[in-house]
Design a protein around this nucleic acid. Structure first.
Lengths: 344, 344
DNA sequence: TTGTAAGCGTTATCAT
DNA sequence: ATGATAACGCTTACAA
């Protein structure tokens, strides 16, 4: 059987015995069309199973109705939740979402910028997540609208949707100090990342409020991945029980999970011998033993808002591009924090 | 500042003082161009920061260099892993991946088919995952190439990448029976799904081999979600300890996790009082207490292969479209299985 | 080796 | 209310 050519508007026009423009008017609801003729067109569309060619539309309209979503990985559930939020907002507007996962093995920024410049993407929701230099984002931003999620660049105020990491970190740390911990260590995120800085600042504020010397608190720098959590926990807990930290403040759940795994392997009981807190509230965190005390980020909502902000940027006049305030990060009290074995 | 129009090939041609086609030849490596002129073109491209308009290309080439990935949700890590595999294969070919997450609240099949027909997508990798009628997929398939993942439609042999669920299920169940369990219950997946059927069949084979009457084994039908696992576990374990099952065969990890949560809440110790197995080997499963005995599906690889198969379908002649054999599913022995408290 | 010109399938402007 | 017709930016015969 010969595979038939897909019908074009021309075919529809001929079938309905009207002109090309009439078909276009009907399809887009622009321009007036006599009821009888519009029915003929609609019929033809149905009969021929016509559907408009997206590439031609994009070319003519100068808009792809597609946005990009840059995430470092999908298996991190936080990113997955953000992605679902983005997808939901886009779907409501009949906009496609292209998944961009920068290959770790290459310099991805140039490729992304090219992609954005190629007009196949109208804009980008960007979640650097791990590492990635701020300057690269600035470069990207020259090619088209970019909205940052879970990230911010202090000097330049790019649109960004973040939550109040500093406050969340401060509160969860306060909870730890209120249990009487005095020797704590921080397992932080990549120091280039805004979230890592904010969380560290939050921890320090809480420590200061608890009367500790913040300079005395060891800060081990991880990369937000589970493995680094395990490795750094091992490092932090190397000393004898009497001198090592009684609590670990982990800048995200993944590293807290790594730390917890280390403790299990090393026979350190949590929370009896060591208290542990994370950040993100991944779905898994409530399933661990002990259930992890952490800070919830409204991931889905963040993604949704970021996409919404991007759309506002793309069609000015619709709504003010503002409104990307700071979302709340809420402490989830669970079982991984207890008073230190030896108070003081 | 006035925002400057993006450069087109025409601009490049003028800047380089060559014709349009010469630029095209250089950019696509088609047609011979004198070294000196090619440099002029490349220079112009750099100076003007030109990058080709993707929509125009797609229109002319009749190919969007974009595929769709249909997944029910991203927060399920199995799907996320598949997605990463798809993304990786696509990225290697400079093909974009559009994320399609069917909204549960509407009939998505028609929308997807329209999308595929609109030529914005060259093909689709389809993971129904939960529910979704096979017939809908057949309909979709009329609009363009579709490769199924983790799913199969018995009658019609659509290209599909699956792993050997039946064998995996049989082996993990055998492991349970070898511990001496006689009273077991199955928490199965949606009966319309191939994977659910296969796993159930595997469990039954193992039961038969262990000398049990397969008709005696209660099968509770879940939906592959955590909540249904919890609910069905409660139902299965409602009886007194002497008569209720001593082991639960769960058709996926999510339901096993739900079952485990129920047991914790109900004070049933796993594996001492109840053995539990899952299927999928989600990253979280090894972090649970007890660590979940389950069957690993090579999710990433499945996604990668599915995408690869789709590309083969799209450019015939490159490689034979075959090769989507059945991948192995391997049992992961961990801590959630133990002999029943009261043997026999 | 280089250039001209005819589409690709839409949308939008302008007459009618 | 309807219909020619000119773009949109690119690829590709075909001509030179």
């Amino acid at each position: 059987m010969a595979t038939r050519r897909r019908p074009t508007m021309k075919d529809v026009a001929e079938h309905a015995r009207v002109s090309l423009s009439t078909v276009s008017y009907v399809l887009n609801g622009t321009g007036p069309v006599a009821p009888e003729r519009r029915d003929r067109v609609l019929d033809a569309v149905r009969v021929l199973e016509y559907s408009p060619n997206g590439s031609a539309r994009s070319l003519k309209r100068r808009r792809a109705s597609t946005i990009g979503l840059v995430v470092p990985e999908l298996t991190n559930q936080f990113f997955a939740m953000v992605a679902e939020g983005v997808q939901k907002a886009a779907s409501a507007r009949d906009v496609l979402v292209v998944l961009v996962v920068p290959d770790a093995t290459e310099q991805p920024e140039e490729k992304q910028a090219t992609l954005l410049r190629s007009q196949r993407l109208d804009g980008v929701v960007y979640l650097s997540g791990t590492g990635s230099l701020p300057t690269a984002i600035l470069e990207l931003q020259r090619s088209g609208p970019v909205v940052l999620v879970d990230e911010q660049i202090p000097g330049f105020d790019l649109p960004a949707v973040v939550c109040d990491s500093r406050r969340g970190a401060r509160e969860v740390a306060r909870h730890v100090f209120e249990h009487g911990h005095r020797r704590v260590a921080v397992i932080g995120g990549p120091s280039a990342l805004w979230t890592a800085q904010q969380r560290l600042a939050g921890y320090r504020e809480a420590a200061a409020a608890a009367g500790l010397d913040t300079d005395e608190i060891p800060v081990l720098v991880g990369d937000y991945r589970q493995e680094s959590g395990a490795r750094l926990a091992a490092q932090a807990l190397a000393g004898p029980p009497g001198t090592r930290p009684t609590a670990l403040l982990c800048a995200n759940d993944l590293m807290a999970i790594g730390a917890l795994e280390h403790c299990k392997a090393a026979g350190i009981r949590v929370p009896q011998e060591l208290s542990l807190v994370g950040f993100d509230d991944l779905p898994v965190s409530g399933l661990l033993t002990p259930r992890l005390t952490t800070v919830r980020q409204p991931a889905h909502d963040m993604g949704f808002r970021a996409a919404t902000a991007l759309f506002d940027l793309l069609e000015p006049g619709d709504a003010p591009p503002g409104g990307l305030g700071m979302l709340p990060a809420t402490v989830q009290l669970r079982d991984s924090v207890a008073p230190p074995a030896v108070p003081g």
